[in-house]
Design a protein around this nucleic acid. Sequence first.
DNA 1: CATGAATTTAACTCAGCGGTACATTTTTGT
DNA 2: ACAAAAATGTACCGCTGAGTTAAATTCATG
Lengths: 227, 227
Amino acid sequence: MDGSGDRPKSKRKSSWKKDPEAVKANILEIATEEFAAYGLSGANINEIAQKTSTSKRMIYYYFGDKEGLYCAVLEGVYASLRNAEDKLEVGNLPPVEALRRLVKATFDAHAKAPHFIRLVMIENIHNGDYLRKSEIVPKLNRSIIEKLEDVCSRGKKEGLFREGANALQLHWLISSFSFYNVSNRATFSASFGTEIFSKAMQSLVKDRVADMVLAAVVIGHEPRSWD
Amino acid sequence: MDGSGDRPKSKRKSSWKKDPEAVKANILEIATEEFAAYGLSGANINEIAQKTSTSKRMIYYYFGDKEGLYCAVLEGVYASLRNAEDKLEVGNLPPVEALRRLVKATFDAHAKAPHFIRLVMIENIHNGDYLRKSEIVPKLNRSIIEKLEDVCSRGKKEGLFREGANALQLHWLISSFSFYNVSNRATFSASFGTEIFSKAMQSLVKDRVADMVLAAVVIGHEPRSWD
DNA sequence: CATGAATTTAACTCAGCGGTACATTTTTGT
DNA sequence: ACAAAAATGTACCGCTGAGTTAAATTCATG
């Protein structure tokens, strides 16, 4: 489709009129939208195909079947969340401030990654069957744990954190807030109204959550009063 | 099917050979299993029909269509969780102890209601579209909020709780832990192992969570160190 | 330019599944 | 007893949507 006969942008050997990488990426992008929106059984391959710039046959060519496509999508969103997390560097902040930063960043990262949230929800509906097959995902999640372990050990060494403060439990805790805050918006709103998800409230809640985590870990930390 | 010709167990006027209420209940029970297991699009009406003691025809007769059945299931699980919550009475406990009890009870109630959890997840995938149509569910959820409001106001009156401690935010907080702890087991385990979901660990985590909530609300509450 | 591997198109298959038609039996009201 | 209404059984329909077949096109290379 590029009028001139020169190389489009490929880093490989020479010019390709057809660009498989771009086609795959395009399929993945659309499929991510669709699976996130409708789930594994709810998403429709014909629909996906129609929204791509290629055809259904190509989906099967590159990803084998619906499940293969779903798995690829799943690994994709995990990888991109890791990417976001890795950008945050708190190694040279004092432990308390570092932890506060980590909590807030995790909260924000989840709020900004609705596709990730929805796909993880969907994967949990499927009991993690597809995630368990993945070889890359478990590795991805090491980095956030390592960060927390570093902060914990520094905090304890300086006598600021409680002994036994545990990176894994801490991560579980922080994820609870951050995940639920996005995943259950629809039903929570339907039952209790939307106030808590307003921009102003979300900012408050984020501070409150950070405060709570700190209070759990930092000796003598007194949370501020609520608004 | 009852050999003798006498009334089976009906409280209505006279004996019924066919018992519509029981048929409906049976359908709902099976449908709850299936929708919880496979989601709205994943569940299969033929499959459901086969597992009931009646036929597919009856499902359509009583519930109209697949969505109608799903809605009925959804309202059912909400109602039965409310039922469980309502059994807990903390009105005559001192505020701090009452709150601790409420947190632990909510944690336990969620852990024991996997169908509820899964159906709420599924409903969130559908953006709460079906829940929003329900007229009964919003009312159901009043009771837990009222309990928290009562405890909060008592705690504040006695000068134990921070001013501004808020029933809705508190409920959001408690639900986060309690819900996520069940909803995301599969993916969390796949990434970080299953230790945190062992019986012993769950008991610890529950105490820790209760402690955290108290620390957030109760003035001067110092959580115990972690194990 | 002949060859063959990689990539792409278009049309087709076919069973699974949501939903229905219609007859039949059971219960109720009078 | 009898008609109207509620409840149920059986067989069927049509369409949707996952996956396939087979052939055409494109590109690298000798």
